[in-house]
């Protein structure tokens, strides 16, 4: 029997809430009360997320975040620090039983990143998967991805840069000392690219394209969090993802 996906349409939440929703859905799938879900979202206020094993203090200019009203949060997925510009980026989560995906982790990245690549292709953007976990356009990163696998459930986070303010991004993410010179920061900017650098489309246009790429060939229906998921997410947002004890745990 083909897997039936729940698709949660593009929505906007705080950093803590976005991470808590994913966690609540993972828990629901583990318990057998939630189904496979893909969701698309934005961050309000803008936020920096760091990988499961990173140090907040080493990766993020926390003082600058506070000055600009930018949130910060630790993900449960690995990978690196990401700036989620509230107006210039779309994030997605794919949450489903691990058994539905290749056991080989790189191959599972390749599969899900293929949905993003398909969506970008419909905008005329020729993107390719760059192992381990990136999608690139003309050699520059346009999407970063990160997975967690816990107790039989896979969660993949991914972000697609639409019109992210790169100067602001690199003022919030700490780069190692050798990259602090203007020259090196410029190089860091040169390593990433955005949808608006390649296609004339709106953020909604990008969302429509990604949605089409994700659901292509799948059984799905649009849905929302159920009562239990929403309650769990609210609890986790306050107790875990907004708490320094989690965000500064490394």
């Amino acid at each position: 029997m083909r897997m039936q996906w729940r698709v949660i349409k593009l929505e906007t939440r705080s950093a803590a809430s976005n991470m808590a929703v994913d966690n609540a859905i993972m828990d629901g799938i583990k318990a057998g009360t939630s189904g496979p879900t893909m969701r698309f979202y934005r961050w309000m206020p803008s936020a920096v997320s760091i990988g499961r094993f990173q140090s907040m203090e080493e990766e993020v200019n926390v003082a600058r975040c506070k000055e600009l009203g930018v949130s910060y949060v630790r993900r449960i997925t690995g990978g690196g620090a990401v700036y989620h510009d509230s107006e210039g980026e779309i994030t997605y989560s794919v949450i489903a039983p691990e058994e539905e995906f290749p056991k080989n982790i790189i191959e599972s990245y390749r599969l899900i990143c293929g949905w993003v690549i398909s969506g970008l292709a419909s905008l005329g953007i020729s993107a390719e998967f760059a192992p381990i976990n990136d999608i690139i356009v003309k050699g520059k990163k346009i999407s970063g991805n990160a997975q967690a696998r816990k107790e039989g459930v896979l969660l993949q986070h991914g972000t697609v840069l639409y019109s992210t303010n790169l100067k602001r991004m690199f003022s919030l993410l700490k780069v190692s000392s050798e990259k602090i010179s203007d020259k090196m920061i410029k190089n860091a900017e040169d390593r990433v690219t955005r949808v608006t650098d390649h296609a004339d489309t709106t953020l909604d246009g990008l969302y429509d394209a990604l949605l089409a790429g994700f659901v292509e060939g799948k059984d799905y229906e649009f849905g929302a969090l159920d009562h239990d998921e929403a309650a769990k997410a609210e609890d986790l947002a306050g107790k875990v993802y907004a708490a320094d004890s989690w965000n500064f745990s490394r």
């Binding site: 080493e58 997925t77 690196g80 381990i132 997975q147 696998r149 816990k150």
Partner: peptide
């Protein structure tokens, strides 16, 4: 691969170790 950093506290032997980075590990 990815970046990895190790921080140690050390007396006569390692008393605490912390491994940081943008790598992936399952289970975490």
């Amino acid at each position: 691969g990815k970046m990895v950093e190790v921080k140690v506290e050390f007396g006569e032997a390692v008393t605490k170790a912390r491994i940081l980075g943008d790598f992936f590990m399952y289970p975490d």
